[in-house]
Protein backbone atom coordinates (compact mmCIF):
# COMPACT_ATOMS: atom_id res chain seq x y z
CA UNK A 1 0.00 0.00 0.00
CA UNK A 2 1.28 3.46 -0.86
CA UNK A 3 2.35 6.05 1.70
CA UNK A 4 -0.39 8.38 2.98
CA UNK A 5 -0.39 11.77 1.27
CA UNK A 6 -2.37 13.51 4.02
CA UNK A 7 -2.07 12.63 7.67
CA UNK A 8 -3.84 14.24 10.62
CA UNK A 9 -2.91 13.34 14.15
CA UNK A 10 -5.06 14.53 17.01
CA UNK A 11 -6.33 17.51 15.02
CA UNK A 12 -8.64 20.00 16.73
CA UNK A 13 -10.38 23.02 15.25
CA UNK A 14 -12.17 25.84 16.97
CA UNK A 15 -14.83 27.95 15.42
CA UNK A 16 -15.13 31.18 17.36
CA UNK A 17 -15.10 30.32 21.05
CA UNK A 18 -16.28 26.76 20.51
CA UNK A 19 -14.11 23.77 19.68
CA UNK A 20 -15.94 22.05 16.83
CA UNK A 21 -13.50 19.24 16.03
CA UNK A 22 -11.87 17.38 18.90
CA UNK A 23 -8.64 15.55 18.23
CA UNK A 24 -9.37 13.49 15.11
CA UNK A 25 -6.77 11.44 13.24
CA UNK A 26 -6.88 10.17 9.69
CA UNK A 27 -4.67 9.37 6.73
CA UNK A 28 -5.55 9.53 3.06
CA UNK A 29 -3.58 7.65 0.41
CA UNK A 30 -3.16 8.35 -3.31
CA UNK A 31 -5.68 6.44 -5.39
CA UNK A 32 -8.12 6.24 -2.50
CA UNK A 33 -11.40 7.90 -1.63
CA UNK A 34 -11.71 8.62 2.07
CA UNK A 35 -15.18 9.71 3.11
CA UNK A 36 -16.32 11.36 6.29
CA UNK A 37 -20.04 10.97 6.90
CA UNK A 38 -22.16 12.44 9.66
CA UNK A 39 -25.10 14.68 10.45
CA UNK A 40 -25.30 18.42 9.79
CA UNK A 41 -23.29 20.23 12.42
CA UNK A 42 -21.03 17.28 13.23
CA UNK A 43 -17.94 19.31 12.28
CA UNK A 44 -17.19 17.86 8.85
CA UNK A 45 -17.01 21.15 6.96
CA UNK A 46 -15.00 22.75 9.75
CA UNK A 47 -12.48 19.92 9.50
CA UNK A 48 -12.13 20.28 5.75
CA UNK A 49 -11.78 24.06 5.94
CA UNK A 50 -9.06 23.69 8.53
CA UNK A 51 -7.13 21.18 6.43
CA UNK A 52 -7.25 23.68 3.57
CA UNK A 53 -6.08 26.49 5.85
CA UNK A 54 -9.26 28.57 6.03
CA UNK A 55 -9.33 27.97 9.81
CA UNK A 56 -6.42 27.34 12.19
CA UNK A 57 -5.83 23.70 13.05
CA UNK A 58 -4.17 22.43 16.23
CA UNK A 59 -2.39 19.10 16.23
CA UNK A 60 -0.25 17.62 13.50
CA UNK A 61 -1.16 17.88 9.84
CA UNK A 62 1.26 16.65 7.22
CA UNK A 63 0.94 16.66 3.44
CA UNK A 64 3.43 14.52 1.52
CA UNK A 65 5.39 14.14 4.75
CA UNK A 66 5.71 17.88 5.33
CA UNK A 67 4.00 19.74 8.18
CA UNK A 68 1.45 22.15 6.76
CA UNK A 69 0.15 23.93 9.87
CA UNK A 70 2.08 27.11 9.06
CA UNK A 71 1.51 27.13 5.30
CA UNK A 72 -0.72 29.74 3.70
CA UNK A 73 -3.61 28.57 1.53
CA UNK A 74 -1.61 29.72 -1.48
CA UNK A 75 1.25 27.43 -0.49
CA UNK A 76 -1.14 24.56 0.14
CA UNK A 77 -2.68 24.94 -3.32
CA UNK A 78 0.79 25.10 -4.86
CA UNK A 79 1.75 21.96 -2.94
CA UNK A 80 -1.18 20.08 -4.50
CA UNK A 81 -4.20 20.48 -2.23
CA UNK A 82 -7.56 21.64 -3.52
CA UNK A 83 -10.94 22.12 -1.86
CA UNK A 84 -14.31 22.20 -3.57
CA UNK A 85 -16.36 24.02 -0.95
CA UNK A 86 -19.98 23.22 -0.14
CA UNK A 87 -21.05 26.63 -1.46
CA UNK A 88 -18.91 26.19 -4.59
CA UNK A 89 -17.39 29.67 -4.18
CA UNK A 90 -17.30 30.40 -7.91
CA UNK A 91 -16.56 33.79 -9.44
CA UNK A 92 -20.16 34.46 -10.39
CA UNK A 93 -19.73 37.48 -12.64
CA UNK A 94 -16.90 35.83 -14.62
CA UNK A 95 -17.05 33.37 -17.48
CA UNK A 96 -16.60 29.62 -17.16
CA UNK A 97 -13.29 29.92 -18.97
CA UNK A 98 -12.01 32.63 -16.62
CA UNK A 99 -13.05 30.58 -13.60
CA UNK A 100 -11.07 27.65 -14.93
CA UNK A 101 -8.04 29.76 -15.87
CA UNK A 102 -7.96 31.21 -12.36
CA UNK A 103 -8.00 27.66 -11.05
CA UNK A 104 -4.49 27.35 -12.46
CA UNK A 105 -3.42 30.57 -10.71
CA UNK A 106 -0.64 28.95 -8.67
CA UNK A 107 0.88 27.65 -11.91
CA UNK A 108 0.52 30.99 -13.72
CA UNK A 109 3.18 31.55 -16.30
CA UNK A 110 2.92 27.91 -17.40
CA UNK A 111 0.71 26.78 -20.24
CA UNK A 112 -2.71 25.60 -19.06
CA UNK A 113 -4.10 24.53 -22.42
CA UNK A 114 -3.76 20.80 -21.75
CA UNK A 115 -5.39 21.10 -18.37
CA UNK A 116 -8.27 23.02 -19.90
CA UNK A 117 -8.76 20.36 -22.54
CA UNK A 118 -8.65 17.67 -19.86
CA UNK A 119 -11.35 19.43 -17.84
CA UNK A 120 -13.46 19.95 -20.97
CA UNK A 121 -13.05 16.26 -21.81
CA UNK A 122 -14.27 15.32 -18.35
CA UNK A 123 -17.13 17.82 -18.40
CA UNK A 124 -18.19 18.43 -22.02
CA UNK A 125 -20.97 20.70 -20.74
CA UNK A 126 -18.39 23.20 -19.52
CA UNK A 127 -16.89 23.40 -22.98
CA UNK A 128 -20.30 24.22 -24.47
CA UNK A 129 -20.73 26.96 -21.89
CA UNK A 130 -17.19 28.24 -21.76
CA UNK A 131 -18.20 31.89 -22.37
CA UNK A 132 -21.25 31.88 -20.14
CA UNK A 133 -21.18 33.64 -16.77
CA UNK A 134 -20.81 31.23 -13.87
CA UNK A 135 -23.80 32.63 -11.98
CA UNK A 136 -26.17 31.86 -14.84
CA UNK A 137 -25.50 28.13 -14.73
CA UNK A 138 -27.60 25.40 -13.14
CA UNK A 139 -26.66 23.73 -9.87
CA UNK A 140 -25.13 20.70 -11.54
CA UNK A 141 -23.10 22.78 -13.96
CA UNK A 142 -21.81 24.90 -11.12
CA UNK A 143 -20.67 21.82 -9.26
CA UNK A 144 -18.89 20.61 -12.40
CA UNK A 145 -17.25 24.00 -12.75
CA UNK A 146 -16.18 24.00 -9.12
CA UNK A 147 -14.58 20.58 -9.52
CA UNK A 148 -13.07 21.58 -12.86
CA UNK A 149 -11.59 24.72 -11.37
CA UNK A 150 -10.04 22.68 -8.57
CA UNK A 151 -8.56 20.23 -11.09
CA UNK A 152 -6.85 23.08 -12.94
CA UNK A 153 -4.35 23.35 -10.08
CA UNK A 154 -3.35 19.68 -10.67
CA UNK A 155 -4.22 18.60 -7.15
CA UNK A 156 -2.73 15.48 -5.61
CA UNK A 157 -5.39 15.68 -2.89
CA UNK A 158 -8.89 16.73 -3.86
CA UNK A 159 -11.25 17.60 -1.02
CA UNK A 160 -14.97 17.73 -1.77
CA UNK A 161 -17.58 19.14 0.59
CA UNK A 162 -21.05 17.77 -0.15
CA UNK A 163 -20.72 17.53 -3.92
CA UNK A 164 -24.22 16.03 -4.18
CA UNK A 165 -25.91 18.94 -2.38
CA UNK A 166 -29.07 19.99 -4.16
CA UNK A 167 -28.35 17.95 -7.28
CA UNK A 168 -30.62 15.55 -9.12
CA UNK A 169 -29.71 11.87 -8.69
CA UNK A 170 -28.54 11.46 -12.27
CA UNK A 171 -26.10 14.35 -11.93
CA UNK A 172 -24.94 13.04 -8.58
CA UNK A 173 -24.08 9.72 -10.15
CA UNK A 174 -22.23 11.51 -13.00
CA UNK A 175 -20.20 13.45 -10.49
CA UNK A 176 -19.40 10.37 -8.48
CA UNK A 177 -18.21 8.70 -11.68
CA UNK A 178 -15.80 11.56 -12.30
CA UNK A 179 -14.54 11.35 -8.73
CA UNK A 180 -13.93 7.66 -9.15
CA UNK A 181 -12.01 8.21 -12.39
CA UNK A 182 -9.80 10.74 -10.65
CA UNK A 183 -9.11 8.23 -7.93
CA UNK A 184 -8.17 5.57 -10.47
CA UNK A 185 -5.75 8.07 -12.01
CA UNK A 186 -3.99 8.35 -8.67
CA UNK A 187 -5.58 11.37 -7.00
CA UNK A 188 -6.31 11.11 -3.30
CA UNK A 189 -9.88 12.17 -2.51
CA UNK A 190 -11.27 13.32 0.82
CA UNK A 191 -15.05 13.39 0.51
CA UNK A 192 -17.64 14.76 2.89
CA UNK A 193 -21.19 13.65 2.29
CA UNK A 194 -24.63 13.67 3.81
CA UNK A 195 -25.63 11.22 1.14
CA UNK A 196 -24.10 8.41 3.15
CA UNK A 197 -25.07 5.58 0.88
CA UNK A 198 -23.54 7.08 -2.25
CA UNK A 199 -20.43 8.11 -0.35
CA UNK A 200 -19.90 4.71 1.26
CA UNK A 201 -20.46 2.98 -2.07
CA UNK A 202 -17.79 5.12 -3.73
CA UNK A 203 -15.19 5.18 -0.96
CA UNK A 204 -12.53 2.72 0.12
CA UNK A 205 -12.13 4.19 3.57
CA UNK A 206 -14.66 5.91 5.78
CA UNK A 207 -15.02 7.66 9.09
CA UNK A 208 -18.21 8.54 10.92
CA UNK A 209 -18.20 11.94 12.58
CA UNK A 210 -20.44 12.87 15.48
CA UNK A 211 -20.19 16.01 17.57
CA UNK A 212 -16.66 16.70 16.41
CA UNK A 213 -15.30 13.19 17.03
CA UNK A 214 -14.72 10.19 14.79
CA UNK A 215 -16.92 7.54 16.36
CA UNK A 216 -15.77 4.85 13.99
CA UNK A 217 -13.33 4.52 11.15
CA UNK A 218 -12.37 1.72 8.80
CA UNK A 219 -12.87 0.24 5.34
CA UNK A 220 -15.98 1.73 3.76
CA UNK A 221 -17.57 -1.68 3.25
CA UNK A 222 -17.22 -2.49 6.94
CA UNK A 223 -18.67 0.85 7.98
CA UNK A 224 -21.55 0.42 5.54
CA UNK A 225 -22.36 -2.97 7.11
CA UNK A 226 -22.28 -1.70 10.70
CA UNK A 227 -25.81 -2.04 12.10
CA UNK A 228 -25.46 1.10 14.25
CA UNK A 229 -24.47 3.16 11.22
CA UNK A 230 -27.26 1.66 9.19
CA UNK A 231 -29.83 2.74 11.72
CA UNK A 232 -28.56 6.30 12.12
CA UNK A 233 -27.48 7.22 8.63
CA UNK A 234 -29.13 4.77 6.29
CA UNK A 235 -32.06 4.54 8.64
CA UNK A 236 -34.94 4.15 6.25
CA UNK A 237 -34.65 0.38 6.08
Amino acid sequence: MSEPILTLQNASVSYGAVEAVHGVSLSVRPGEIFTVIGANGAGKTTLLNAIMGLLPLRGTATFQGRAINDLSIEQRVAAGMALVAESRELFGAMSVLDNLRLGAWTRRGHADGDDLEAVFARFPRLKERRDQRADTMSGGERQMLAIGRALMSRPKLLMLDEPSLGLAPRIVSDIFKVIDTLRLQGTAVLLIEQNARAALAAAQHAAVMELGNFTSQGPAAVIAADPGIISSYLGLH
Binding site: P169, V172, S173, N195, A196, A198, H237
Partner: peptide
Protein backbone atom coordinates in the same frame (compact mmCIF):
# COMPACT_ATOMS: atom_id res chain seq x y z
CA UNK B 1 -42.92 6.76 4.28
CA UNK B 2 -40.40 4.21 5.48
CA UNK B 3 -41.63 1.81 2.85
CA UNK B 4 -41.90 4.23 -0.05
CA UNK B 5 -39.48 3.49 -2.88
CA UNK B 6 -39.59 7.11 -4.08
CA UNK B 7 -38.53 8.36 -0.71
CA UNK B 8 -35.66 5.93 -0.39
CA UNK B 9 -34.40 6.94 -3.80
CA UNK B 10 -34.73 10.67 -3.15
CA UNK B 11 -33.43 10.70 0.32
CA UNK B 12 -30.58 8.27 0.09
CA UNK B 13 -29.55 9.10 -3.44
CA UNK B 14 -29.46 6.94 -6.51
CA UNK B 15 -28.49 3.37 -5.93
CA UNK B 16 -25.90 2.40 -8.46
Amino acid sequence: IRASKDVIRAYLGAEA
